[in-house]
Write a protein that binds this DNA or RNA. Structure first.
Ligand SMILES: [Mn+2]
Ligand SMILES: [Mn+2]
Ligand SMILES: [Zn+2]
Ligand SMILES: [Zn+2]
Lengths: 140, 140
DNA sequence: TCATCTATTGCAAGTGTATTGCAATTATCA
DNA sequence: TGATAATTGCAATACACTTGCAATAGATGA
């Protein structure tokens, strides 16, 4: 686990290194797909880590602030998901409408387009979301 | 108002042409930016059109099914928005993080990329979301 | 035009995700 | 180890959206 990064980030912001923060970060690190708060809660329960769902929400919030975790909002899911940023490039996702499978897309085609949008709209672009839905090979 | 399209679509699916459906469609047609269910509700109240918020939700659902209205999910807004499809190309949006202003982007750069994603992932892509956030000229 | 049928509506209640208040707990450090 | 303050769990709350059901109102045809 990236315990060093966690500890450093927490210390730097006057926060404490706790079992639950380590447990949530550890779970996200060993899970390849992005997890919702409820899924984090349920998985940790299975692993006999005592944690409240409220604490999961507060923990992912902190991990996001420290830049260790990214929050993902998939099309029509009605819940946020979280995944580790450490060692992974900025990327997007495709989700199967049938089975819900989520696959990473290892490209982001938007860098050039962002410049174009800035010149067209006079906005300063800060962020973007780009998510696809479709049918995975098994569900076609 | 596209009363003809509405009537035709409703008849074709065994539904009825009602005051509220006409009122919601009419409001969306004369509003340039996408509206949330609550905004539709509040605006119609102002115009002395009696309608319940529940009915707004049910109505936008029907208008979506008829293909007359598009549902938009902006980054971190926590609510859906609706806009007329009639006479408008498929497009995306940019929203100002400060004042909430929403501006249409009159391009969709994803047609070629979709092919690439399909060949990379073996998914059949059905849909995508692409939304930007930033600061509008007034809020910079 | 009117009666009948049934889709639609309004109201109340319910869902699901996420947030907040507060007292109890626990990490940190002298 | 004890003092301090951050963190946690629990209960309550917020908010978008949905559902059940009886009342209302379009559509149809006599
Ligand atoms: Mn990912
Ligand atoms: Mn638009
Ligand atoms: Zn990107
Ligand atoms: Zn597009």
């Amino acid at each position: 686990m990236n315990a060093a990064g966690l500890k450093k980030g927490l210390k730097a912001t006057g926060r404490r290194v706790t079992r639950t923060r380590q447990a949530v970060l550890g779970l996200l690190e060993r899970t390849p797909q992005p997890l919702s708060a409820t899924e984090i809660f349920e998985q940790l329960q299975k692993e006999n880590v005592a944690i409240d769902l409220v604490t999961v929400y507060r923990t992912v919030h902190v991990l996001k602030e420290l830049g260790l975790v990214a929050q993902i909002e998939l099309h029509h899911e009605g819940q946020a998901r979280y995944e580790i940023k450490e060692g992974r490039e900025h990327h997007h996702h495709i989700q199967c409408q049938m089975c819900g499978a989520i696959v990473d897309l290892l490209l982001c085609p938007l860098k050039k387009i962002t410049k174009l949008i800035e010149s067209q709209t006079k906005f300063v672009v800060d962020d973007h979301t780009l998510e696809f839905t479709g049918l995975c090979p098994r569900c076609q």
